[in-house]
Every structure is written in structure tokens, then in C-alpha cells.
Amino acid sequence: MELLKMFLTFAKVGVMTFGGGYAMLPILQREIVEKQKWATDAELTDYFAIGQCTPGIIAVNTATFIGRKHKGVLGGIVATLGVVFPSLVIITLIAAFLTNFADIPLVRNALTGVNACVVALIASSVIKLGKSTLKNSPSVVIFLCVLALACVANFVPFPAVWWGKLLDTVISPAVLIVCAGVVGVILWMPAGKKGGGRE
């Protein structure tokens, strides 16, 4: 029964996600953190961090993590199948009957509204996450550095010469995450304060 509930909960998350893994965050916070209490906000940021550096889609990785934590290996598989199930049904129907789906004016207009809403939802989610992940000044410094570098990578087109390509590779989410982990070890390992981190 627990597994069925897990499948249905993640199917619900899948059907309510519009866009990439980040658009899933507000829904995960509501369904998984607040309603089911299967994970905390801090754990969600952990899963997203790991999802940035591991193969596969972040949404899928996060579902596997939460399922595994709550109900073991089988839970991980069931949660993942749950999150992809709505896509299978919806996309198959659209691919079979509505190949011009994305060109329908009603769809395009409605989707533009949804996208504007998703921007606001992500902003609100980031504030919630920040409350649990940015509690001290070194954390805030790491946050600001990574945000600045990631924005440079997103918004500044690097020239297609060797150093531009090098920068493009170096300032990737996976590299930034790994560097932040190393900084964390340097900063907090010697202090060795117990208990402040995981729950």
C-alpha cells in the first residue's frame, strides 16, 4: 500500500511539473516536504546538487533518491516509475493525435502564462530553500560566488576560441558543485562541529 501511495504521489508530481527539473521544485516542496514529510528542504538541495553531477535527468534522480530513502531500493524504482508515468500517457496521446499540439494558439498562450507563473514559483522556492541552506556567512559567500559564475555562464556568450570553450567547460554546474564541496570540506572539516548538517 505504501508503495502504491508512493507511485501515486510521484505521478502527481510528474503531472504538475511544467518544464525542467527546476519547475518540479515547488511541487516537490509542497507534496514531498510539507504533505508527506518524506524529505526536508535541505535534503532536496542535496538531491539537486547530486543530480547536477550524475548522469540522467534531475527530476528522475530526485525521485529515485526520495523513494530509496523512504522505502529502500524498490521504493526508489517505484517513485521513479511514478514520476515518468504521466509523461508516457500524455505524450503518447499527443504524439498519436495532435502532432501540431505546440502550434495551437490556445496552447501557446496558456503556456506563456504558465511559464510566467513558474518563474514566480521558483523564486519563492529558492527563498524557502535559502532559509535552510544559507544560515551562516560562509554559506552566503558560496551562494553569491556560484550564483555570479552561473549567471555569467548562462548570460554571457563565450567566444568560440580555445579559452572561451575552456571557460564554458570549467563554469559548468557539475564543476561548480564539486568545487563548493571541496570548499565545504576545507571550511568545516577542521572545525568538526557535529550535528549541524544532516537530520
Binding site: 535541505a42 539537486f48 552561473a150 568545487c179
Partner: peptide, 23 residues
């Protein structure tokens, strides 16, 4: 534990940056 203390603010920043791209 120490590595994750460093990862979390970075992960939060990447989510914020992705949000800004969508914005």
C-alpha cells in the same frame, strides 16, 4: 557532512541561476 555544507548553498545558487534563465 562538511562537503554537503558547501554543496547546499551552491545547489541553491544553481537553482536561482536556472530560475533567472527562465525569467
Amino acid at each position: 557532512d562538511a562537503a554537503f555544507k558547501g554543496l547546499r548553498p551552491a545547489s541553491t545558487a544553481l537553482i536561482a541561476a536556472a530560475g533567472l534563465s527562465v525569467a
